Amino acid sequence: MRGFLYRALAVLLAILVLIGLFFWLVMPHGGARHQIGAVSTNFRWFGPNDKVVVERFDDPKIPNISCYAASAQTGGIAGGVGLASDPSEFSLNCIAHGPVNLPADLPRQEQIGAISASLIFKHFILTRILDDKKDAVIYVLTSTKVLKGSPANAVSAVAVQAQPGA
């Protein structure tokens, strides 16, 4: 009986690892992502504290645009080993820190980054959308976990100089 339990646990662990690997492979890892800092929001006796983490995403196809996302991370023992599901609470601000030139072959809409908010089921996805009529680049951060019929989201826009001859 003991051997059966060990085999069952090994199979379950292998399945979880394969599912995690699958989601890691299909999630967009586009733009450069850098953790800028974190602010502790709740003390935990065991494991790391809850915190708000600030990360920078550099747009991989549009030089001089960076987006800053702040998201809540659950601490404690489960959070310390990566098993906690983080709340869908986040904000987004994008800036141009130099001249912005749009590549000619830039897709109208594209996922450019992601933040893992749980081991498998929840991620925050950063998507770029072009607004040609108003010469702007829009960035939307959404949660893949739907809450009450609608995903949590944040939006930011960056103005683009009109291209000559456009």
Rank of each mutant, 00 (worst) to 15 (best):
D86K: 15
L119M: 12
D105S: 12
I125L: 12
N93R: 03
G165S: 00
L83T: 15
V100K: 07
I19W: 13
D132I: 04
L106K: 09
L9F: 15
A114F: 15
D135L: 03
A84H: 04
L25Y: 06
F121V: 04
K134W: 00
A136T: 08
D131H: 04
T74V: 03
E55S: 06
D131E: 00
Q161W: 00
A78Y: 06
R7E: 03
L16I: 03
A84L: 02
L5H: 08
I138G: 02
T127H: 04
G82M: 06
T41K: 00
I115P: 09
V26C: 13
S71Q: 02
K133N: 11
F46H: 01
A166S: 14
V17N: 11
S116I: 05
A70F: 02
F22H: 07
L21R: 14
F43D: 06
V26R: 15
E55P: 01
W45V: 10
V54Y: 08
D135G: 02
S143P: 02
Q111L: 08
A32L: 14
D132F: 05
I115C: 10
L106E: 11
M1W: 06
P63L: 09
Y6V: 09
V155I: 14
H123R: 12
R108N: 14
D58L: 00
T144G: 00
S156P: 09
I138A: 09
S71M: 08
D131G: 01
G76T: 07
D135H: 06
T142V: 12
V17W: 11
I19T: 09
P63R: 11
V155H: 01
G80D: 05
V155D: 02
A159P: 13
G113C: 03
G31A: 13
V137Q: 06
G30E: 15
V100D: 10
H29V: 13
L13R: 01
G3R: 09
S66F: 04
I65T: 10
L9R: 06
L18A: 15
P99L: 10
L92H: 00
V146K: 09
K148N: 05
G20T: 15
F124K: 00
A159M: 11
S118A: 14
N101A: 15
I36L: 15
Y139D: 05
K134Q: 05
P164W: 01
I120A: 09
W45F: 09
L21H: 03
Q73C: 02
H34T: 15
Q109C: 08
V26F: 08
V140A: 02
H123V: 05
V11F: 11
G20R: 15
T74D: 03
L12N: 03
A84G: 01
S143D: 14
L25C: 01
T41P: 02
A104V: 12
A154V: 10
G37V: 00
V17G: 06
P28R: 05
G82D: 03
A10Y: 03
F22R: 02
P87T: 07
T127A: 07
P107D: 09
Y139V: 01
G20Y: 13
N49S: 14
